[in-house]
Computed example of a mutant assay.
Amino acid sequence: MNAGSVDIVRRTCRRVGLDRNPMRRREDRWQSGVGILLAVLVLVTVPLVAVLIGRPIYDAETRAVQQETARLHRVDATVTEVGKTPLYAPITPVKVSWRDADGTARSGDYHSNVLVEVGAIVPVRLDATGRLVEPPSPARPMSRAVLTCAAVVAATVIACAGGYLVLRCGLDRRRARLWETEWAAAGLTWGGRGAN
């Protein structure tokens, strides 16, 4: 380590209360220690949550999406009417028609995520009753896993920050009482009169 690196390490240790300053009270060391412990807890929580909570949720949701998709029947439908695409979403409402397995003509509303024209062929999904349905989103497993992990990490951060603030307030009150006691003792020593 060069001299600049050593100075940075010393300054950092002094700022977080890990130096050997004789003016630091036991309460100051407690506060620093608990703060570092809680910071490490938050940093360890993120990968643990991803492995222990996020991965099982992702796997379960992936299986659910695959099962839902397997229950749907794919049919090629013809676009019969194209609606107006809203500005806020790249989804075009269209009317489509198709024939069932027995040859019956059917029609329904469909939302295309690509631009289509009348007469275009689009793949649609039907449920067991022959009703037109949207297939489950392939992004659903990842989004649910990420949202759940984010909620757990946020709850951990809030709990750790709240615990630290409660500890700090309690230690601040204790430091204030000790400060007043020491000033009263100093008044007796320095002036001989003590507190009035």
Rank of each mutant, 00 (worst) to 15 (best):
G130M: 05
L87G: 13
Y110V: 02
L126K: 09
W98K: 05
P123M: 03
D76N: 09
P93L: 05
T80G: 05
N113W: 09
R71E: 14
A77R: 04
D127P: 13
D100A: 13
A77V: 04
G130F: 08
D102K: 13
L72Q: 12
D100N: 12
D100Y: 05
K95I: 12
P86E: 06
K84P: 01
L87I: 10
T129K: 11
L132E: 08
V75E: 08
D76M: 06
T129W: 00
R125E: 07
V82F: 06
V75W: 01
V75H: 04
T80R: 12
P86H: 05
D109K: 10
W98Y: 09
D109L: 12
S107R: 14
R71Q: 14
E117H: 13
T85M: 12
V94H: 02
A120L: 02
R71D: 11
S112K: 04
V122N: 03
D102E: 12
T129C: 00
L126R: 10
H111R: 15
A101S: 12
G103I: 10
T85N: 09
G83P: 02
L87Q: 12
T92Y: 04
I91K: 08
A128W: 04
D76C: 00
H73I: 15
V116W: 04
G119P: 06
A101F: 06
P123K: 04
K95E: 15
T80W: 10
E117V: 03
L126N: 11
S112G: 07
T129G: 08
S112C: 06
P86A: 06
V118L: 00
A101K: 10
D109I: 07
G108H: 04
V75D: 02
R99Y: 15
V96L: 07
W98L: 02
L126I: 09
G108I: 00
A77F: 07
A120W: 00
L126D: 11
K95C: 03
T85K: 15
L126Q: 10
A128Q: 15
T129L: 03
D100E: 12
A128I: 05
S97E: 14
E117L: 06
G119W: 01
G119Q: 02
D100I: 00
V94E: 03
G103A: 08
I121P: 01
I91W: 05
P90K: 14
K84S: 08
E81H: 06
P123W: 01
Y110F: 15
V82C: 08
L126S: 11
E81D: 10
T85R: 15
V118Q: 14
Y88T: 14
